[in-house]
């Protein structure tokens, strides 16, 4: 594990992965959009609005997946003081907030015509809104604390405490009566969704995963570069002080 802790090694690994993940992101999203918008049928109940699902459901999965990655990285940062873990958690947060925002917006745009309301305070919708605020709170917290070690620690604790929300989101539709329907794809007894509709859903979900990898690696890179920039700036400032003395 610590072989990858070396930032230089990480940078080399990232350079190898990035072209592949970029190509896969573009390919999967283009084919996913083709099936989502053109080559898939309308739903027998919901008509064309079912196409909102191909954005809404993958975005909601990614919102939870990204938070899980952030929580795992936070645990690694807190327990093993893994140098890249904190960088990964920080880099993931804005991406997760973006996915959560998409899930919320598309959910409202889907709820208004189908349910008859933009928003209700049921357990699923409310717990996803809390997830969005957890992301925002995490970003505000780590940016507000100047000392990098203290920021990493505080952020990791917040991310881990917030992780209780993830099972609540996932199982809210099973534990309580909600307006939101239960899971269609990841459930006992196989998906209750026609194959012609499952295909665009899976393509978009895979595309979102590779998008996440591409953006996460780039963000981690800039975090690492900026850390070295700060170190070099401090060293230069120190040198010029010595020269002046």
């Amino acid at each position: 594990m610590h072989r990858f802790a070396n930032p230089a090694r990480f940078q080399r690994l990232a350079s190898i992965i990035l072209p592949w993940s970029d190509v896969l992101t573009a390919g999967l999203l283009v084919s996913g959009l083709y099936f989502a918008l053109f080559a898939s049928p309308a739903d027998y109940q919901q008509g064309e609005t079912v196409r909102i699902m191909y954005i809404h459901v993958p975005a909601a999965w990614m919102a939870m997946f990204t938070y899980s990655v952030m929580a795992a990285a936070s645990a690694a940062s807190l327990i093993w003081k893994h140098p890249l873990a904190d960088v990964a958690a920080r880099a993931a947060a804005p991406i997760g907030a973006g996915f959560t925002a998409i899930a919320l917006i598309t959910g409202m745009l889907w709820g208004e015509p189908m349910w008859g309301t933009w928003w209700v305070w049921d357990a699923r919708l409310t717990s996803v809104l809390i997830l969005f605020f957890l992301y925002l709170g995490y970003m505000a917290l780590v940016n507000a604390i100047e000392n990098p070690a203290a920021a990493a620690r505080a952020g990791a604790i917040l991310a881990l405490v917030g992780f209780v929300n993830i099972p609540i989101i996932k199982f809210s539709v099973d534990w309580w009566n909600t307006l939101h329907q239960p899971a269609s794809v990841i459930k006992m007894g196989g998906p209750s969704i026609a194959p012609s509709m499952l295909l665009p859903l899976v393509l978009m979900a895979l595309g979102f995963h590779f998008y996440f990898v591409s953006v996460l690696l780039r963000r981690m890179r800039s975090e690492l570069d900026l850390a070295r920039v700060r170190a070099l700036e401090d060293a230069i400032a120190l040198n010029s002080e010595e020269a002046a003395a």
Binding site: P41, A42, D43, Y44, Q45, Q46, V50, M53, M114, W115, G116, T117, V120, L179, Q181, P182, A183, S184, K187, S192, I193, A194, S196, M197
Partner: peptide, 27 residues
């Protein structure tokens, strides 16, 4: 408010299921 179920399928599939008697009904 309308509450929809977790089943998604094209209209033709739903009709065929109803015709052959494999319709599970609303979950």
């Amino acid at each position: 408010l309308a509450k929809h179920d977790e089943n998604y399928m094209p209209k033709e599939v739903a009709d065929a299921l109803k015709k052959t008697g494999h319709w599970q009904g609303e979950s």
